[in-house]
Amino acid sequence: MVQIKYLLLISRQGKVRLMRWFGAYTSNDKTKICRELSTTVLARKAKMCNILEYQDHKVVYRRYASLYFVCGISSESSNELLTLEIIHRYVEAMDSYFDNVCELDIIFNFSKAYEILNEVLICDGSMTETSKTNILKTVASMDALETSDNLDQVLS
């Protein structure tokens, strides 16, 4: 039933840049998964397929520039391609928001990255919104809110 178990953003150097755990994992499990997946995924060649079987579930990953987006999905779901598509949606949304996104954008604006993620994917990896325009609209309205808050602060 649980579709996506976790989403990790791992850099070429094997550092975790963003993580979201949709299931209850202990700290040890998390560290183990981060460590093992970063070595396995980074070692795979570009031509290999993006799906691998790991522990009791499947892992779907895709590389965008210097970042690997890694998703753990339950083995009974047959949605590997769709997971790639979800990742792609997320990247697209960030790309439009940051205007050609790069790793540094995600590092420095991690809170924004999480905010966009929340618009795409919450609760066990169920999609909230599939349309990029709608996602960006929501995020933009929140940005506007933030700006007006800041303005209020300055004025007061």
Partner: peptide, 19 residues
């Protein structure tokens, strides 16, 4: 891709955090 610092700072206004 290269980092574009000007664009990133425009999104994140907390200087202490940036540092």
């Amino acid at each position: 891709m290269l980092a574009n610092n000007s664009s990133s700072s425009s999104h994140n206004s907390m200087r202490g955090l940036q540092l």
